[in-house]
Write a protein that binds this DNA or RNA. Structure first.
Lengths: 353, 353
DNA sequence: CGTTAGCACTCGAAGCATCAGAGTGCTAAC
DNA sequence: GTTAGCACTCTGATGCTTCGAGTGCTAACG
């Protein structure tokens, strides 16, 4: 049997539609797909023998495989990859779903901090796999506002609001007792000095400040804590990864009775790989798909990620996406991820207009 | 064979020590315990036949069972219960561990918001099961501070700091454009009116305020949003349940290849039962243990919870604890949970002194 | 030359019997 | 009350057989 194609460069239309059919069928049934099943369910107009020939070719091209001689075919990672490339541009989400998602976001419009959580939840329930989202985070955050609230004589709560929307609260122990009034004065001074600045700028500004007198000392002490907090915020690569619907993934038959999934979760908890991915995704402008073994860590060999950045490239950037078995409904996943990331873009832009 | 005891009221010392031995052995090995194994490993000074007699008695009393005729014994929920009652007061944590945990909390002393997360993490890693924690939350929160930060012409970020330490941020759309200066004036007015008040009090106070003029209208509008936000905070039974170490539970052999655990997680996600438990635990002053089927939901039949409240009973109350298979090291779990809850008590008291 | 019917072949899943061994419960003796 | 001894039970592992799904190949066909 001559191999009709050697490279994954391009397939003839019939082969491609059969590849699609195999993927479609396997995604829904989770069991190897037989040639006869394809003929029965996809009206191919040819016999199962012909289909078998094509399947053998697709296998030769590395797009399919089969678990053992007398079993049906399942897609390889390369097969999914080819499929994903071929449908990349035709994954518009149905209007109904778009509306539903928009509606959900409308409900929490008054709490921007909730957006990214909602994004994860929405993606999870729309795709019935796990949804992931990180809050948009700048490389170098700008202070917008500083506030000091007295807790007790020598203890105060320092609240930093960032231009990018985030909020940090830290406790400050004071070297000398101070009333709320003094704290307020210090906060106003710091606010004047630091508002609109990054950590580096704020530090320079703080150096030029008069630190004489009790208020001066207070300003200095708190100012140092502010800078430390901003630095800390800047240094945190991933502030938080919010996930939802991990249960959906646990339900997938491929993970039912093995510890594969446990290892995936463990790999997720150790943020190293996730950080690397986010870094990569944040640089691109669109939806990124990482299929099975395309993920460097061994533990992630059996899952795929569909991720997209949101936010403002120069400014704060976050990532949203889904995680599921390699056997996932990619068109649907890509569609919703793209839509949700665009939606978040809109919301964030509206916020920083 | 005469049953030597019918009630679980009290066991003779030897029976009790054998019960302990069975539990100890089962907890570590996860497989049914044979009479011979007990003799070998626990230096009981009697023969396996004698042990078998006692085991039969313990089974008659409902404290043990065995999966089939020719298998060793495993504890029943009632067996664990008896065991837990019998050791309740002798679960002091070793000084080394106490120090280690204290040290960890020392590291984040400057960020109270992190405490309860750290509590969950600490409990998880100390016991190698899942750790749970909720932030301390009052029934009726008191406003401590109100702040308004301009985002754009008609959009502002409203920040509410509660006396109990929590923080809320909501977006407010303004009916008319307002500069930061106007916002600051409005915030100062609201601060004066509402600081130290609960939602109900604040509402009354707001009603008495002059709402004439542009600032007056702004104050009223934002004031209403403040009250809504406080009400919303009050109405949230469980603000958030932070969990860590769910992976540890996944590793337990009893959950290795079944969907039991999935159902447990699902039950946890639906907060109903957890809320009920927290309510119950918050009312008590000490460590509460819920073993297997003592948990009302069917899905929780195979796990146990060890929970303790922290905070100030009249004021803000949170809950910390662990979740694991019924086969868990109760003394260790009770010890760490008690210690961590006491530690949080100290920290919180220090904060609200 | 591509397509197809037919068929041999392969391999896993399921059912069944067998067997070893772990562990109990009981009896009778101490 | 304790214990040795032993019959009994049940599980889990192993090996065998059977069944059927599905393939790959061959040869015929248009």
């Amino acid at each position: 049997m001559a191999r009709r194609f050697r490279t994954t460069g391009s397939l003839d239309p019939r082969s491609e539609s059969i590849l699609r059919a195999v993927i479609d069928e396997y995604v829904t049934t989770a069991s190897p797909v037989a040639s006869q099943a394809l003929v029965d369910r996809y009206g191919l107009g040819v016999s199962s023998a012909t289909v078998r020939n094509i399947l053998a070719d697709l296998e030769g091209a590395g797009l399919l495989t089969h678990p053992h001689t007398s079993a049906g075919r399942i897609p390889t990672d390369a097969g999914y990859r080819y499929f994903v490339e071929s449908i990349a541009d035709s994954t518009q989400l149905p209007a109904v779903e778009q509306l539903m998602i928009r509606h959900q976001f409308g409900q929490v419009q008054h709490a921007s901090e909730q957006w990214f959580r909602l994004a994860a939840t929405t993606l999870a329930s729309a795709n019935r796999i796990a949804g992931l989202a990180t809050p948009a985070k700048p490389r170098a955050a700008h202070v917008r506002r500083i506030d000091l609230v007295s807790i007790s004589d020598r203890l105060a709560s320092l609240i930093i609001v960032f231009r990018e929307g985030a909020l940090r609260q830290v406790l400050v122990t004071l070297s000398e007792a101070a009333e709320q009034e003094a704290l307020t004065r210090a906060a106003v001074i710091l606010d004047g000095v630091m508002a609109g600045r990054t950590a580096a700028d704020a530090e320079r500004a703080l150096d030029r400040i008069d630190s004489d007198g009790p208020i001066g000392a207070l300003v200095r002490r708190v100012g140092e804590r502010v800078i430390a907090a901003v630095r800390d915020y800047d240094a945190t690569l991933i502030e938080e990864v919010f996930s939802d619907g991990l249960l959906h993934v646990m339900e997938a038959p491929e993970f039912e009775r093995s510890d594969k999934l446990r290892r995936v979760f463990a790999a997720l908890e150790n943020r190293a790989y996730l950080g690397e991915l986010l870094e990569r995704v944040a640089g691109t402008g669109s939806v990124n798909v990482f299929i099975g073994a395309e993920n460097a860590p061994d533990e992630m060999r059996d899952v795929s990620l569909v991720l997209a950045p949101y936010g403002q490239p120069g400014n704060a950037v976050g990532v949203v996406g889904v995680l599921g078995p390699t056997r996932m409904a990619y068109p649907q996943a890509i569609g919703t991820v793209r839509f949700v990331s665009n939606l978040l873009n809109e919301l964030v832009q509206h916020l920083h207009a």
